[in-house]
Design a protein around this nucleic acid. Structure first.
Length: 267
DNA sequence: CAGAGCACCTGTGGGC
DNA sequence: TGCCCACAGGTGCTCT
C-alpha cells in the first residue's frame, strides 16, 4: 500500500502522539508479524524520535529502534486505550503512556522488528538513497545508473538503490520524465537522468503535500484519505487518454508489477 | 547479474 | 445468486 508519501504522512500525523511517550508494552496477536527476536529491552524506554527511512516507520528509543513496515495494507491507528474487544485485522499494538497505536493489516504482510544500535546501523546502510534528501542529485543518479543493466521500472523499485519509490510513483515519475519503463537504466543520458531526477522529486513532493494517495484502503489517523489520488496521470488509467497526447495509456507487466505508460510520449 | 515465477495473505470486482 | 479468476500500493525466495 504505502510508498514514501503515504509513510511520511503516517509519520507526521503520528509524531505528536508518540514522541516523548514511554513504550509500556507491545501486544502481539499474530506472531508472524514480528521479525526476529523481540527482546524485552524496549520495555519502558522513551520514544525519542519518530521518523521515516525508506518505507519504514522508525521509533528511535533510548537504546535501540523499533521499525514497522506496512507493506500492502498495513495501518497504524492511534487510540486512547486498547479496545476491550479484539478488532478485525488488528495484529499488534504499541502501548504507550497516553494510549496505544494499533497495527491493523488485512493481508498480514506488514512486519515489526526491534533492532539494537549496532544492528540498526547495518540495517540502515543497506537501504538506498533518500530521494528527497540532498545526496540525491542528477549527477548521483547518472553515475549510479551506469552499472545497472536492468530495466528502469524494476531498477527504481529496488529499495537498495533509491529508497521509498513504489509502483504508483515510479509509473508517475517515468511519465513526467518521458522515459519508457523498459529502457535500460545504464543507457540513460545525462539529460535523461536530469529529467528523471526532477520528475521523481516533483512527484514525491506533490504527493507528500497532498498526504499521499488512497486507492484501495490507505488511510491515516484511522480514517483520512490521501488527496493525490485524483492527480494520477497514468497509474491505473489503462485505455484512458494520455494527458499529453491523448493516445490511450498502455498497461504491461514488468518485474511482476502492473506498469502504466504512454508509448508515444515516453521514449 | 537479470528476470520470471511463486510465496506470503485477504478482499473485491468483473464475467459468466 | 454463486462461482471462478484476476488483481491489489511490497518484499524475498528459488530457479534459469
Amino acid at each position: 500500500m504505502p510508498e514514501l508519501p503515504e509513510v511520511e504522512t503516517v509519520v507526521r500525523t503520528l509524531r505528536p502522539f508518540v514522541e516523548g511517550q514511554s513504550l509500556q508494552d507491545i501486544k502481539v496477536y499474530w506472531p508472524r508479524i514480528v521479525q526476529g527476536p523481540l527482546k524485552r529491552t524496549w520495555q519502558g524506554q522513551t520514544v525519542k524520535v519518530l521518523k521515516r527511512r525508506a518505507k519504514f516507520i522508525v521509533m528511535q528509543l533510548d537504546s535501540g529502534f523499533l521499525t514497522t513496515h506496512l507493506r500492502m495494507t498495513g495501518q497504524l491507528i492511534p487510540v486512547d486505550a486498547l479496545p476491550r474487544r479484539q478488532m478485525p485485522h488488528v495484529h499488534a499494538a504499541f502501548v504507550l503512556t497516553n494510549g496505544a497505536i494499533l497495527f491493523q493489516d488485512v493481508r498480514k504482510f506488514g512486519r515489526i522488528r526491534f533492532l539494537g544500535p549496532a544492528d540498526y546501523a547495518l540495517w540502515e546502510s543497506k537501504l538506498g538513497c533518500e530521494p528527497l534528501e540532498e545526496s540525491f542529485t542528477a549527477d548521483w543518479l547518472y553515475e549510479s545508473t551506469r552499472k545497472r543493466r536492468r530495466q528502469l521500472k524494476p531498477a527504481l523499485l529496488d529499495q537498495g538503490f533509491i529508497a521509498g519509490l513504489g509502483n504508483i510513483y515510479v509509473d508517475e515519475a517515468l511519465f513526467v520524465a518521458r522515459l519508457q519503463p523498459t529502457r535500460l537504466a545504464a543507457d540513460l543520458s545525462r539529460q535523461d537522468c536530469s529529467r528523471l531526477h526532477g520528475a521523481i522529486q516533483k512527484v514525491l513532493r506533490k504527493a507528500t503535500a497532498a498526504n499521499g494517495s488512497s486507492f484501495m484502503d490507505f488511510k491515516f489517523l484511522g480514517g483520512q484519505e490521501g488527496g493525490y489520488t485524483d492527480e494520477m496521470l497514468v497509474f491505473r488509467r489503462t485505455g484512458l487518454p494520455c494527458p499529453r497526447c491523448k493516445r490511450p495509456i498502455e498497461r504491461i507487466v514488468l518485474g511482476g508489477r502492473s506498469t502504466h505508460f504512454c508509448r508515444s510520449c515516453q521514449i
